[in-house]
Design a protein around this nucleic acid. Structure first.
Lengths: 134, 134
DNA sequence: AATATAAGTGACGTTAACGTAAATTAATTG
DNA sequence: CAATTAATTTACGTTAACGTCACTTATATT
């Protein structure tokens, strides 16, 4: 048993697969988010590395900063039970949710104000006998 | 008649009133959004200038870039009928509305995904006999 | 006039997340 | 082994909207 699946990836390969640029992957490493092995100078990524990169991209999509993602990943592997990791994740996720809910509120307020301006503009143009092209 | 209300403002005064810093006001001028008169080297703002600044701040609140605001303000005074100005405003406002509505959609999708993660995290902690502190 | 206060100026710094270009090194292929 | 291709490194650039700091100039007060 434990015949491990030995599929390796290179930077351009991962970049192509995941729709990002090589520069981005190296940038993440520079920021401490990835630590691939090397074959000479060439980076070699395992499937775990790839999974980690996917986690990073997901975090980004969800609006976390690279710093936050890095903090989270630091618990990765340093926590056998993963309980701390999950707790921290939960905390951040809840923070993020509340941020976004706030943003949503603000966005709705802004939308209302913009619609009001739209309305007024249309009225003003009508009074000049012009067509606002709705 | 036409006894004009001659109230003038200075940079720090406006800044204090409007809750921004003097540097910001000078920055706006540097970007061509304001053109106050001078008494020697000191900037002197009329009530019109103040109104213009309020317009700028409102535009910012609504999410327009300084560039967009500048473009808009350029029509100010260069358009006797103001029809063009209103048309352009309407166009930008509609663009902005549609941007924001899109953002709102994306935000809702993100929120859903985050809530899903929250849910999973809570479950995972429960299985370890830990309290997720809801 | 000397000092103090206020206003202005110019240059540079900040933040985030990379992009770009040029120069190097390494690996592969004929 | 020479040439090509691939990967890396290094350094600097980008964007937006200002903030900071160190001076310099101007006005006001004593």
């Amino acid at each position: 048993m434990t015949k491990i699946d030995e599929r390796f990836y290179t930077v351009p390969e991962l970049a192509g697969d995941l729709g990002i640029t090589p520069r981005t992957i190296r940038f993440y490493e520079q920021k401490g988010l990835l630590n691939p092995q090397r074959a000479g100078t060439t980076r070699v990524y395992t499937r775990q590395d790839r999974a980690k990169l996917l986690l990073i991209l997901r975090g980004k999509r969800l609006g976390f900063s690279l710093k936050e993602i890095a903090d989270y990943l630091d618990l990765y592997g340093a926590d056998p039970t993963q309980a701390e990791q999950i707790k921290m994740l939960l905390e951040r996720v809840r923070e993020r949710i509340s941020d976004l809910e706030e943003q949503r509120q603000a966005l709705d307020v802004t939308l209302d104000e913009l619609r009001e301006i739209e309305h007024q503009s249309v009225d003003a143009l009508k009074e000049k006998g012009l067509d606002p092209a709705p």
